[in-house]
């Protein structure tokens, strides 16, 4: 079995805000090994979210390829890729606002065709230190930290071996941030998943196995020295 689970190969990507064309990536390559915790650091607006979207197949690079276990993700059915291989924890959580916590997680499990019960979902919530009486609360009644935990639970259901997290500590105070990172770490190591976190926070970088920095001059990633 090959070591690299995910590879970005010669990626080029530019955005056009109507007036200016901004190059975010040029000849950008990066490999991720299975079972490790990666941290990608970059300034705000440098293209971190865009890069995660490219890895997830939600967006297409102008040039280059994303390879999952050596296979171009363009050749994998996108819904299969997203359902079975890659989970995303979004910057702003992206939970379904009109559903409660239970329904949000149940919806994700249903998509993956996994069996679930109230008890099994309560069990998952306990693992991320969420009270079970939160289960039937609407999403908009939760605090930022609670939402982030729910989003983590949702991303961890199923057998997806890659977890992409977009600034998972961005909106949280530093105590909660530490806890969330610890949670992610244990969950991912225990289940042998690959975690790729993008962030602008040094705090997150401290926990990563491998840390890269998005260099806006070369439009690509360099290892953190």
């Amino acid at each position: 079995m090959m070591k690299e689970i995910l590879q970005a190969f010669n990626i080029a990507y530019r955005v056009n805000d109507g007036k200016n064309v901004k190059v975010l990536f040029e000849n950008c390559s990066l490999s991720f090994d299975a079972g490790k915790f990666y941290c990608l650091l970059g300034e705000s607006g440098s293209g971190k979210t865009t890069f995660l979207h490219l890895l997830a197949g939600l967006d297409k690079p102008d040039k280059g390829h994303i390879l999952y276990r050596g296979k171009d993700i363009q050749e994998i059915e996108r819904n299969n890729y997203l359902r079975d291989h890659v989970s995303i924890i979004f910057q702003d959580y992206n939970l379904i606002p009109y559903m409660n916590v239970y329904q949000n997680i149940a919806a994700a499990m249903a998509i993956k065709k996994l069996p679930y019960t109230k008890e099994s979902i309560a069990e998952m919530l306990k693992k991320v230190k969420l009270d079970t009486d939160i289960m039937f609360k609407r999403i908009n009644l939760l605090s930022g930290g609670e939402k982030q935990r729910v989003a983590i639970v949702r991303a961890l259901v199923g057998n997806n071996d890659i977890i992409l997290a977009d600034e998972p500590t961005g909106n949280l105070d530093s105590d909660t941030a530490k806890e969330i990172i610890a949670l992610l770490k244990t969950a991912v190591y225990k289940q042998h998943k690959t975690l790729i976190v993008v962030s602008h926070s040094e705090l997150v970088a401290e926990s990563g196995d491998v840390v890269y920095i998005l260099d806006q001059k070369i439009k690509g990633f360099v290892p953190k020295s």
Partner: peptide, 13 residues
């Protein structure tokens, strides 16, 4: 739109 995007990101066709 966002809701639909979320479902797609979760693997819905």
């Amino acid at each position: 739109f966002r809701e639909m995007g979320i479902f797609i990101a979760l693997g819905n066709t």
